[in-house]
Design a protein around this nucleic acid. Structure first.
Lengths: 250, 250
DNA sequence: CGTTAGTTTGACGGCACTCAAAAGTTGTGG
DNA sequence: CCACAACTTTTGAGTGCCGTCAAACTAACG
């Protein structure tokens, strides 16, 4: 985290850019030498904010780059033959998009901006070349893939809609926490419809679950803004407890 | 236990072992030099067959090795707080187990033998060291992770139980095809209960779906042995068509 | 042959889907 | 600033798929 600020010698402009970047050392190995960091920065292109609706890539596009999200929100999704949208994942600040195309160098998903997003584009050719020269880099990419992989599994473990939504809220909260001053309070960057397609429910079901959670004063939602009022109780629900059988906060 | 003799005199034997291995070049880069191949083999330990029920590792175990499946079947799963089993994936010959622990070097899942399995154990330390020396190796590991990742997504796209099962049968068929002489005919190495936990249905639902598919003469099942009789029709169902609305084979 | 584990089949109930309509929100142009 | 359109969210009523419970049946193993 603080590594980017610890030294101002070397490559000031680049370090500065990364110090401000919301990735804050997550994307790149903290152990990188100054020279290495410079080389990484030299190939990264900062762009955005891109407006909602923009596609970063689509299914079958060749794998040209990884995208690091600095701000906003990206969703990756597929369409089945009936035209139903299956949301594979949401990508929030500090996360990478594009892994899906590592093999066989062609994207399996579509990636679309949900909320105006700033990105770093990391050209595949360059990163492949660099990772051969910088040992820690490929390990880091592997780690990031592994992290996303594990996180996704967690979200699918719920049995009913209420549990799934509770898990989802905690997951997004944890991922957005660094963006906000307050804990357990954040803006949901995606619509109910997207959440529904992600959790494999209908938008109506998501709405009903949220209504019930609000009525029980476990959460409060105004527009996109979410507050988790009763962390303990939502935690129980996320672990499979029945909403009706949990008692109000002490 | 297979021999782990690491003497260089046995290099041809190693090549031979890999030639016979059901992985058939999938696990290791085809472009490896002879010397590289030798070094890879020198660190791989062939074991098995391990009996059903054996655990390769459990949640929170440190990441010590990757396991390449040569024969049999492994399932990776977690248990939630209520004790329900969530099957994350099945691992068939030619596939690797253990990726889940790349970061943070600790397993997120349990891995258990479902059907007596022969394995190659690839110690993590060695593979990490080697992958720094052999450029293609880490890329290959990345590719294998990516492949498994993409495959898993596919299986979750079904909307109802019938579609899910159809997709699952095609998936397993494709993965086991090399093991059998005949196309569209194979042995299911896992129980209905495991399939149910994987697809997030109850065992009874799996049974009912299979019954209906047999009654419609789309598949035939005797014990573990599965035949896909009407590939086209099962294909339609896998794409979301309604079983009742598909007509029998021409 | 008896025990155990897995599978099949039925009855019933509940959660979530569909359809539908109303209410709220956002963005645009007058 | 307001009016209107397009979209999202909410809420309700009815239906259906799948889960649960239960019992009968079938291999598999000692």
């Amino acid at each position: 985290m603080g590594a980017a600020e610890s030294s101002m010698a070397g490559v000031p402009a680049f370090r500065h850019a990364c110090g401000l970047c919301s990735l804050q050392g997550w994307c790149w190995p903290p152990g990188l030498q100054d020279g290495d960091l410079c080389r990484v920065h030299a190939i990264v292109q900062h762009i955005g904010p891109l407006p909602a609706g923009t596609h970063l890539f689509r299914v079958d596009d060749p794998f040209t780059a990884l995208y690091a999200v600095r701000g906003g929100c990206i969703k990756s999704y597929t369409l089945d033959l009936q035209g139903h949208e299956h949301v594979r994942d949401f990508h929030l600040p500090g996360e990478l998009v594009g892994f899906d195309a590592v093999y066989p160098e062609r994207h399996h998903f579509n990636a679309q901006v949900l909320k105006a997003a700033s990105l770093c584009i990391i050209p595949y050719r360059d990163i492949a070349r660099l990772s051969r020269q910088i040992p820690g880099l490929q390990t880091r990419i592997l780690a990031l893939m592994s992290r996303d992989f594990a996180r996704q599994q967690k979200c699918a473990e719920g049995l009913d809609a209420t549990q799934q939504v509770a898990i989802f809220l905690f997951d997004v909260e944890a991922r957005l926490r660094r963006e906000y001053e307050v804990e357990y309070e954040f803006d949901l960057p995606m619509s109910h419809e997207s959440i529904a397609n992600y959790l494999r429910f209908s938008p109506e079901t998501i709405s009903r679950v949220i209504s019930r959670l609000q009525q029980a004063e476990i959460i409060r939602i105004d527009r996109e803004h979410v507050q988790i009022l009763d962390v303990a109780r939502l935690g129980l629900i996320a672990q499979g407890a029945d909403l009706k059988k949990t008692s109000a906060r002490a």
